[in-house]
Nucleic acid binder design. Structure first.
Lengths: 143, 143
DNA sequence: AATCATGTAACATCATATGTATCGTGACAA
DNA sequence: TTGTCACGATACATATGATGTTACATGATT
């Protein structure tokens, strides 16, 4: 499968929204990401449910930031978009009674869990505000 | 997609082969893994090309270990089965000129690379021989 | 009332590991 | 020599999950 890019996409969007006055429509965001407005709504729904953004209908509507960027980490965004699946590799459990298989799976999963813990720690240590520091440049909104 | 379980499956097989006299057929291995002989041949082909196992045709043929288990790490097996794809998450590059996107992707990929480095280090630090220590028990070969 | 924008459902597309069927090839044995 | 065994390889089917797309409903603004 293609890589799950929801985290990086939403970070991209959130930082643009932070530098943008007024609501941004799903259409505008979709052009920015090179995708479709429905995909944007679908993915942003997780951020909305988590309270990080708010959506407004009708004329002049769209998406606006609804949280303090200092208080939202990259990990928070990752979880809000519903991306619990980090690794593409894992174990199979065909014979739960097989000592060999249990030892192998324990070794592999131990390594995976440590790597996941490190990733979680690093994503959790960076806030959107920190990520936003260092540039104030907008990019073009066309694809 | 389902998790890629080629690494854990091959480790499972290799440790059984280490405790087994004579060649093991793909059919036998397939029953052990709860899968198909063709899947076994396909996956074992990587190990064969890397020199970790050897295959023999004809009566009494099958798969045998062809390397010192002390010299083969879990990382070696991972690479031999052609599993370079570790993460299910990643970045999208729609606007290579967008400073925001570049900053976001850099942050995400930095975290991923550190997690990958840790995983690689841990897999590389364990040999098949070490993994084989601690049990000499066979599991049943039926699914 | 018309328009804009989100919300949602339904279906298509794509990528990749896995499952399955089939045939070819080489090795061993009767 | 011939039959059987086991691998080698190809082709195709299946399952899963993110993504792309179309269509329609709902609510807000003008």
């Amino acid at each position: 499968m293609r890589n799950d890019s929801r985290l990086s996409r939403m970070l991209h969007v959130l930082l643009h929204m932070a530098n943008h006055d007024g609501p941004m429509t799903s259409e505008t965001i979709a052009r920015m990401l090179g995708t479709n407005a429905v995909v944007v709504r679908r993915t942003m729904a997780g951020l909305r449910d988590a309270g990080y953004v708010r959506s407004e209908k009708g004329h002049g509507g769209g998406w606006v930031i609804a949280a303090d960027l200092e208080m939202v980490s990259l990990l928070d965004v990752h979880r809000a978009v519903g991306g619990p699946r980090i690794f593409a590799i894992g174990s199979e459990h065909s014979n739960p009674d097989c000592a060999v298989e249990k030892a192998v799976n324990a070794a592999v999963e131990d390594a995976l869990q440590h790597a996941e813990a490190l990733l979680i720690a690093r994503l959790g240590a960076v806030s959107l505000a920190e990520l936003a520091q260092g540039f104030k440049v907008h990019c073009g909104q066309a694809d």
